[in-house]
Structure formats: C-alpha cells, structure tokens
C-alpha cells in the first residue's frame, strides 16, 4: 500500500552518502574492534599460526587419532543431550519465572545464574559427590540401576548444569514481552491450551530457544572444569575434547593441543554463525521484512 517511491530523493553530489544521527560511531566501533582484536582475534590467530606450523599431514594425524575421534563423539553427543535437556528445562524455568507470582520468585530468579558464578571445578566436584554411588542422588539412582558419576551420563549432567542459564536468560525476556492478548485472542478463537502453545507461543519463542540452545551447546563443547571431575575419564568412553587438549599439553605437545583446539573452535564458530544468520532471517519476517 505505502508508496515508497515518494520517499526516495535523488542524492546531491558532494554530500556524504551516510550522515548518521547518533554521534560517536567511529570511536565506539574502533574501541570495540580493538578490544575484540586484543582478547579474541590475537589469541585465535596465535592458535592458527601455531597449528599451521605443523603441516597438514601431521595436523590430520593428530585430529583423527582414534582416541581423539572417540572424544569428539562423546563430547558432541553429550553436549547435544545436555543442550536439548536445557531447552526443555530452561523453557520451563523461564515460563515459571515470567508467568507466575509466588513467594521466593526473586530468589529463584537469582539462583538461576548460580552455575555461571560458581567455579566450574566446584560444580564438578559437588556433582561428582552427589551422583557417586554413596552420594545422595547416586544412592537413589543406583536402586534403578542408573549410574551417573564416572559415565558419559555424568558428562551430560555436568554440561547441562553449567550451561542452563543460557537458555533461561535468552528465553525469559522474549516471554516477558509477549503480549497476553495474543494468547487471549487465540483462546477466544477456540484454540486449546496446547494449540496456543504450539501455534502461538512457540513460533515466537523458537528463535530465542535456538539461540539459548546453541550457546548452551557451544559452551558444553568446551566445558572442562565441571566435566573432568564427574566423567571418570576412561579412554574411548568418557573422555571429552577439552581433556584431550589438556592431556596433550601435559605431554608438552603444544602443536597437537592447538590442533585439537582449533577443531573445537572452528565447530563452535560455525555453529554460532549459522544460528545468527538463520535467526536474522526469521526475525526479519516477524518484523516486517519480506522473509
């Protein structure tokens, strides 16, 4: 309907193409890029350079070592399971925190961030103690024949614990902004509660959930402190990538360590980039672009 042609005016020669209203663009972007270079790009390029020094053949040999490949599998599967669990549980937590009023809500909200604040080693040791055969949870679970500590399942538990705030904190604000009228409209049109969730709430929450899940997954890939204490670390079964890197470091094989590290980093970077691109497209559609 809107006639956009009218708003397009011919540009006058000599006038700079973009005149920004907000000042400080040059400075703030400069500081940002400088900082990112210092703390991110420089170490990363160091890593790449270090790795590049070893040559393709050796690189390939190191990163395809059967024990390392087994650790990829364990790590990726565990991280996948943990982030899926977090998507469900995190959504539930965010829902409870946004939609209901109950005593202690503020406290619960604050506790949500605890996994970030807690040193990961402390988390790992605590979880290992709780889930060990004599621990509070472990004893109970043992009755059903479920072993958590020192198995791949333990890795999942540790990963889920350390990364759940990612999902809660990305979903929460989106849920808060959701107008209650949307749900009321759907219900007044005859939709059941489940339909309202599936057709109205979920499509709006979906991007945030994917972002949260993706962050949770990326964090889990690199988790070390919490995992090593509960994983048991038996080769080919419950060794994670970060442990493999640490093992190479202990052997003073820095090149091999950085080779494995670069694989993890590359995977994480690709994943985060993909999520960003996909989400950009999805949100554009919601906000009026012709997606």
């Amino acid at each position: 309907m809107a006639d956009t042609d009218q708003s397009v005016r011919p540009r006058r020669a000599g006038v700079p193409v973009s005149r920004r209203v907000l000042p400080g663009f040059g400075l703030s972007l400069g500081v940002t890029l400088f900082f990112i270079s210092l703390v991110l790009l420089l170490p990363i390029s160091g890593l790449v350079i270090h790795t590049a020094g070893m040559g393709w053949e050796k690189f390939w040999f190191v990163v395809t070592d059967p024990r390392v490949v087994a650790s990829y599998k364990v790590t990726v599967l565990a991280a996948l399971a943990a982030s899926l669990f977090n998507c469900v549980f995190g959504l539930l937590m965010a829902w409870v925190l946004v939609r209901y009023e109950f005593p202690g809500k503020r406290l619960l909200d604050a506790i949500m961030d605890l996994p970030f604040a807690l040193p990961t080693a402390v988390a790992g040791i605590t979880l290992a103690t709780l889930f060990s055969e004599n621990g509070w949870y472990g004893r109970f679970l043992a009755e059903f024949g479920i072993e958590v500590a020192y198995t791949p399942l333990g890795i999942v538990v540790a990963m889920a614990f350390t990364s759940v705030p990612f999902v809660v904190r990305t979903v929460q604000p989106v849920l808060e902004e959701l107008p209650p009228e949307d749900e009321e409209a759907a219900v007044s049109l005859g939709a059941s509660d489940w339909t309202v969730f599936r057709r109205i709430l979920f499509p709006v929450l979906w991007p945030a959930l994917v972002t949260g899940g993706g962050l949770s997954f990326a964090r889990s890939l690199g988790e070390y402190g919490a995992v090593v204490f509960i994983a048991g670390n038996s080769p080919y079964v419950s060794e994670v990538i970060s442990l493999m890197i640490f093992v190479r470091l202990e052997e003073y094989d820095f090149a091999a360590a950085s080779a494995i590290a670069s694989v993890v980093m590359g995977a994480s970077l690709l994943l985060l980039l993909a999520i960003n691109v996909w989400q950009g497209r999805y949100l554009k559609r919601l906000h009026g672009g012709r997606g």
């Binding site: 009228e181 949307d182 009321e184 219900v187 499509p203 709006v204 919601l286």
Partner: peptide, 29 residues
Amino acid sequence: HVRERRVGFVFQHYALFRHMTVSENVAFG
C-alpha cells in the same frame, strides 16, 4: 470457558499473530 462461548473478540491493539500471514491469521479460528 472463553473458547466455548463462541464470541468474536477484537482487541484494542489488534493482537494479530505476528508470525502468520494475513490469511493464516484469518484461517486460525
């Protein structure tokens, strides 16, 4: 319940479903 009363309700701020096209919105009911 609202969903059994079969009334049409138009909200002040429209409450259209953002992620659905116009025809999907109308077809929802």
